[in-house]
């Protein structure tokens, strides 16, 4: 299922599949957030989304989170 990162509930694992802005994509790529799945640690209502990958926690602003398309992992939590 493909949705915006801003729509993902807390604690779900997702893969960031599309970051439209070139610069933001480069910055997320460097941090390793595009290497497979990340944990959506917390979504603040109408605010930033905090994602985590291997102990690196990064807050992404609301407007950015709305632009990012993610792929949600299957519900049973099995590795894709």
């Amino acid at each position: 299922m493909v949705v915006a990162l801003s729509e993902v509930p807390s604690d779900e694992r997702v893969e960031l599949v599309d970051v439209p802005d070139d610069e933001c994509r480069a910055r997320l790529l460097r941090l390793g957030l595009l290497d497979g799945s990340v944990e959506c640690r917390r979504r603040i209502r109408n605010g930033p989304v905090v994602v985590r990958r291997r102990g690196t926690e990064v807050a992404l602003g609301r407007s950015l989170a709305r632009e990012i398309t993610v792929e949600r992992a299957p519900r049973d939590g099995a590795p894709q």
């Binding site: 802005d21 910055r27 930033p48 807050a59 407007s63």
Partner: peptide, 9 residues
Amino acid sequence: RRDALIEQL
């Protein structure tokens, strides 16, 4: 333009 917030915690 307004910077996108990408803040490492």
